[in-house]
Design a protein around this nucleic acid. Structure first.
Lengths: 229, 229
DNA sequence: TCAAAAGTGTTAAAAATACACCCATGG
DNA sequence: CCATGGGTGTATTTTTAACACTTTTGA
């Protein structure tokens, strides 16, 4: 079956920059390409947009198919439309970035026999197409967004310590923060629920656990409240 | 001549939200559609991406063709990819927003006999496709960007008074600002060149003219300087 | 009892805000 | 001479930044 159009059409693809955070650093998920061009090379997960799905749906589908990742924070990043960004065909790609709780996705499901693996964002191999540029833009967006929107929580388990949260910000912003000032500020937002629980199995005083109060955030947001760290 | 592909492909279009500022308010440029669907209705300027041009180039070309607008600030906004956003065909649209000096484009060149006109952003007619949503997103982006990036100047003549600049911010942010504090802040950026000129033909004391120091901004930007009003 | 991280307040500096009058110009 | 907008400084409040020790816990 073939499809015919009066004018030539670019192919339309999606690519996803998936971020995760572990004890060491910020990670990006890469997939070993199963097809040419660049077969065997590490690249961003992605694929072509089908005719009967939205572009957003395509991004979610590719994440699920290629990495077994579902129900994550996913947001459109930028559309890359240079004529020669793909050496074979004209392909325009809508890039997305995702934030996942690494604890949930430590073992990446490489579904169709393709390898998937986490790489430190600061030590990525050189990537095919314009994927280096896409990752660069995603990092910049992440750094810009994390201070003004409550998305840092997406990288942590549902229950987390304030020190873990501080590490999220320090890792993304690439600078150290003052512990007391940080706590003052995040608790000052009124968006952290203090739980009657502490972390388990640590070889020192156990820290209190908190949750992000998403419901309250949505209410405040309606009234024009701006999150800021 | 027809083009045939193994898989069905969405058509790829661009749409542009062009902002201008006059004495009254913030304006958006609309074009009367020359073709179906929605022939005769006011809509955003735009059109299909050609196979041999980048998406950015397509946006600039459409602006030039449909409105005679060239050499303006133009930036990608968001890609709209819902399946049914166009009632006839599957069309994914990469939206852009542009800022123009209305003084330069007061008379819009309606090239191919189609009408073009400026509408107050707050009183737009209801637009076809998802163009209402696109304009909404463009306004939100403009409001978010104007405080952190020196783009307000794009709406003014090269030489402007501080009162004109203040009006840019007041109009976009939809709130009044204190004159003394505003001046303190913009002059404090060190990015305004004070000229030895004043405005002409006003029935009161003539205000001093300033220019944005783009060269100096680019230097400071390299060193991590962040513009902020 | 030691190591390791949790938890906690105050002070100083900087930035943001509120606020009102005189000045220059053209009509 | 008057109407119109141009231009200017200070005091207060709020926000941010700097900074160090005691507590808890498990090994």
């Amino acid at each position: 079956m073939a499809f015919s159009y009066e004018h030539a059409r670019p192919a339309l693809a999606v690519d996803c920059v998936v971020f995760g955070l572990d004890d060491e650093d910020l990670k990006v998920l890469l997939i070993q390409r199963g097809v040419d061009p660049f077969q065997g090379k590490w690249a961003l997960p992605g694929g072509f947009v089908r005719i009967d799905e939205s572009v957003d749906e395509a991004a979610r589908r590719e994440l699920a198919e290629e990495a077994g990742i579902t129900r994550v924070f996913l947001e459109q990043l930028y559309t890359f439309g240079a004529v020669a960004r793909d050496p074979r065909d004209r392909v325009v790609s809508v890039a997305y970035y995702a934030l996942v709780k690494l604890s949930d996705h430590r073992v990446v499901a490489a579904t169709d026999a393709r390898e998937a693996a986490w790489f430190a964002a600061s030590e990525l191999p050189s990537l095919p197409f314009d994927h280096d540029e896409i990752v660069g833009k995603a990092l910049a967006r992440l750094q810009g967004s994390v201070r003004y929107r409550p998305i840092g929580f997406e990288l942590l388990p549902q229950k987390f310590t304030l020190t873990q949260l501080q590490r999220v910000y320090e890792t993304i912003l690439e600078k150290t923060l003052d512990k007391r000032n940080f706590r003052k500020k995040v608790l000052g937002t009124g968006l952290l629920l203090e739980l009657d629980e502490v972390e388990q199995d640590v070889a020192h005083r156990a820290a209190r656990l908190y949750m992000f109060d998403k419901k309250r955030y949505r209410e405040l947001e309606k009234d024009g409240f701006l999150f800021e760290i």
